[in-house]
Design a protein around this nucleic acid. Structure first.
Length: 469
RNA sequence: GCGGACGUGGUGAAGCGGUUAACACAACCGGCUGUGAACCGGUCAUGCGUGAGUUCGAAUCUCAUCGUCCGCCCCA
């Protein structure tokens, strides 16, 4: 009997790893631009953290958590989302006592016991942020703006932001009452889920997908009529900031979000194909007023979002946003014959120590096979090591793509490799300031004063300097 | 949790009750100790997700079970 992965889990390897890592790197870079700092949290929390934090009425807590007793008979749960854990951590470590607002981001696996489908797993990855300590419209706006710009940095062109306001505690209490009042009159005709929701969370009835229920929901009171003056003012303030940043959005009154802690401003971001087809939500978030307090901390408000990394990955694949990502290799060292295996291995190690990603077969192989291998591994150059070469101290190096071959001295291997790679490698000049006299087009060096590193390898470019002019 | 489709080598798959499980690609070995193609030979499922049952005989039929995929629900 062969072992299978646990239902709903999957192994990530090959190109997918590069894609996932790329997504995380880009989003982390976006967060750092906004001064968010990474936080790494335990996978397990006491169940109470989620049942109180995420909300006992939410579907996640009611039926989707991986909960079990540990050997000390404590009920623990594998995180179904991060927000409650972040709040717990803020309280445990008294982070609220430091500089506010706290701006944190996270990335990691979360667990939900659901029916798996493509791109939707029981163990999946979320990337998200939390801002705690600042309760105002600008904080809410920054959250959406960061989410949108993160998606844009990944290359998505068509992002659709949906926004709603759930109002403050007073709004919600009044509105809830009005909804219950309204739905009571229709409850007999509604689906069994909604009957339950009437007790647990009448707001959720609004986004019920059952057709008949939708009809009924159309006649329900509107939340915007129940927003308190303060909530309404705050909401329009947020909208105007988002507007000013040129972010397009649409209002969606039925956008409710399934987690209990949200209040005031909530949003979802959908991605669409160039033709306008909605791929669904890749990001959801909003403001939460009482969450930290609910978990035993001070009464600080927060706002955050979470993105589904697997979903982002599959959409990036679909839209060819990850085509350029490849596992490459600088050098493939080819030992010709048994006798040179050790020398080839040493040369391989030397190349690695020079900073070139290098591989070499452990056993001797057919010459032609090694070229195929080099090609398959995506090596830029093949370095040929045979008896004759070793005797003369001159190796042959062949460009896999152009098939050009030249000689390279073993003694000056490092320098000559540097010349070869410097001349032909595509350059990555990140320098915007220096006056380097390289020809590279991407380098708009007009020099300045900052310390910087230019990674341009264009021939004739000598900029590896730390500028001090 | 509910409804539906489907599980045959590394991959794509044919076979749909009769005895060596077709074909293709990939991989590996050789023809060819030194330049990636093409070609030619060879190797590669004692087994058809797993377990029972029907049958003289099962990859083929039945049931169960596990898993995958699709829709719903929910969410990221």
């Amino acid at each position: 009997m062969q072992y299978q992965p646990v239902k709903g889990t999957h192994d990530i390897y090959g190109k997918e790893v590069l894609g996932m890592r790329y997504i995380e790197t880009v989003l982390a870079a976006a967060c750092e631009l906004y001064n968010y700092k990474e936080i790494m949290l335990p996978t397990l929390e006491y169940t109470e953290v989620f049942s109180r934090g995420t909300g006992a009425g939410s579907d996640i807590v009611r039926k989707e958590m991986y909960t079990f007793l540990d050997k000390g008979n404590r009920s623990v749960t594998m995180r179904p989302e991060f927000t409650a854990g972040v709040m717990r951590s803020i309280i445990s470590n008294k982070l609220y006592a430091g500089d506010l607002p706290l701006k944190l981001f996270y990335s990691g696996a979360a667990y939900r016991y659901e029916r798996p489908q493509l791109g939707r797993y029981r163990q999946f990855h979320q990337f998200g942020i939390e801002q705690v300590g600042s309760d105002n419209a600008r904080a809410d706006a920054e959250c959406v703006i960061l989410a949108v710009s993160g998606l844009q940095m990944l290359g998505f062109q068509n992002v659709k932001v949906k926004i709603n306001s759930l109002g403050d505690a007073e709004t919600r209490a009044n509105y809830r009452e009005a909804l219950v009042e309204y739905f009571k009159g229709h409850i007999d005709e509604m689906c069994s889920d909604c009957k339950e929701r009437l007790e647990l969370n009448p707001l959720r009835i609004l986004d019920c997908k059952v057709e008949h229920d939708q009809e009924i929901a159309k006649g329900a009171p509107r939340i915007k009529d129940y927003l308190t003056e303060a909530s309404e003012k705050r909401f329009y303030e947020t909208l105007s900031i988002i507007n000013a940043m040129g972010i397009e959005y649409e209002l969606d009154e039925n956008l409710v979000r399934g987690l209990d802690y949200y209040s005031e401003f909530v949003f979802e971001i959908h991605l669409t194909s160039p033709e306008g087809k909605d791929y669904g939500a890749v990001c959801g978030g909003g403001h939460y007023g009482g969450l930290l307090k609910e978990l035993g901390g001070p009464d600080l408000a927060g706002v955050g979002f979470a993105m589904g990394v697997e979903r982002l990955y599959s959409l990036m694949m679909e839209n060819h946003l990850l085509d350029d990502i490849e596992e490459g290799l600088d050098l493939y060292v080819m030992p010709v014959g048994e006798k040179v295996l050790n020398d080839a291995f040493e040369i391989t190690m030397a190349c690695r120590s020079f900073g070139y990603s290098t591989d070499s077969p452990f056993q001797s192989m057919k010459f032609g096979t090694m070229f195929k291998k080099a090609e398959k591994l995506g090596a830029k150059y093949a370095l040929i090591v045979g008896e004759e070469e070793l005797e003369n101290g001159v190796l042959k190096i062949k460009n896999i793509a152009t098939q050009e071959q030249q000689e390279i001295s073993l003694e000056n291997l490092q320098e000559e490799l540097h010349d070869i790679f410097g001349c032909e490698e595509e350059h990555h000049c990140h320098c915007h300031e220096c006056e380097c006299d390289c020809d590279c087009e991407e380098c708009d060096c007009e020099c300045g004063d900052e310390e910087h590193e230019c990674h341009c390898h264009e021939e004739g470019c000598h900029c590896h300097h730390h500028d001090d002019e």
